[in-house]
Amino acid sequence: MKVAVIGGGGREHTLAWKLAQSPSVDKLYAIPGSAAMSEVAQCVDIALSDLDAITDYAKNEGIDMLVVGPEVPLTEGIADLAQSKGLAVFGPNKAAAQMEGSKVFAKNLMKKYHVPTAAYASFTDGDAAKAYIKEQGAPIVVKADGLAAGKGVVVAQTEAEAIEAVNAMMEDHIFGASGGRIVIEECMVGEEASLLAFVDGKTIVPMISAQDHKRIFDNDEGPNTGGMGAYAPAPVVTPEIRKEVEEKILKPVVDGLKQEGITYQGCLYA
């Protein structure tokens, strides 16, 4: 079969590298790809933002499946568009991609379906957000609602730092429209791990756990980054914790989305 990987970053390079090894893949494309990806795939220079051009190219080229890496095309509906043109696609549709594209959507869904999550409140008014920070105290976490390339979270150690983050997101618009709505969250201290799962809408198949190095400096200091490298499996995720995550987080989220009329297909990121 012919497969196209959508994207051009490190994640997409890894996907392409592995797909190229599959006996099922006769030809591999990367849109737009990168110089590194050209070693394993035919790179096609179409902008990631041009969803019509990507899906039209795939249709005309007889590509059987799209594997979408980046969040932005997913939140903008590339899966819906591809499916409307008869293309198979690995990745959630626009409604399901809100789990990644809107922290408010994800938090509200978790609250409704009793999935454990840090206490929170959401705001579109900066003054109300600052009043809430003063009421709750610090440390406290401020998050831009939308996508911010992994950098839209400020773990504020003081009220002043939290208020500064609100101003940066809501008044200075450092994350553009993503910061027009924010989530202010309880600060939870401890180790963070990720457990990603393959999902077809009902079946959940978790991968191995992973941990990445979020903070920019040694000893967990400095601002959050998009991740400074990762390792897997994460020792903190014992078989017991893994089972708990599957039963109390992954399954209720997929079932909850289904109850909301949303079928999640692709990779679910916990």
Rank of each mutant, 00 (worst) to 15 (best):
K111H: 06
V40E: 09
A234L: 10
I262E: 12
E186A: 03
R215D: 05
R181L: 09
I204M: 14
H213W: 06
A138E: 03
S178D: 06
D26C: 04
M99V: 10
I174T: 10
V205K: 14
Q259A: 15
V236Q: 11
I46F: 14
N60K: 14
D200K: 10
G261E: 09
K243S: 15
A96R: 08
Q136F: 04
G69H: 02
G176D: 03
A4C: 14
K151H: 06
E161P: 00
V67H: 02
A20T: 05
A234P: 07
T225Y: 06
A97S: 15
T158P: 02
K243A: 15
I31S: 04
I63F: 01
A165R: 04
D45Q: 13
D26L: 06
C267K: 06
M169H: 10
H114M: 10
S178F: 00
P223A: 11
K134L: 07
L147V: 08
P23C: 01
H173Q: 08
G101A: 07
A47R: 10
M207F: 15
D145N: 15
I31P: 03
T158Y: 00
Y120L: 02
M228H: 07
G91M: 03
M207G: 13
I182W: 00
V205L: 14
A193W: 00
L81W: 12
A20D: 06
H13T: 10
G8D: 01
G62D: 04
A106M: 14
I140R: 09
I54L: 09
V104P: 00
A144Q: 08
G222S: 13
V154I: 11
K2H: 07
K214D: 03
I216T: 14
A162Q: 00
S49E: 14
H114E: 15
E164P: 00
P206L: 15
G227K: 09
V68Y: 07
K59V: 12
S84K: 13
I174P: 03
P233Y: 11
A53Q: 13
I63Q: 00
E164R: 05
I133L: 02
P223S: 04
A234S: 14
Y269R: 00
D64Y: 11
G9I: 08
F123C: 03
D56Q: 15
N224S: 14
G86L: 12
P239A: 06
I46M: 11
N93V: 01
V44W: 12
G227S: 12
A79V: 13
A168S: 08
P116G: 05
V44G: 09
K18Y: 05
G86Q: 12
A97G: 09
I174S: 04
D145I: 02
K18F: 04
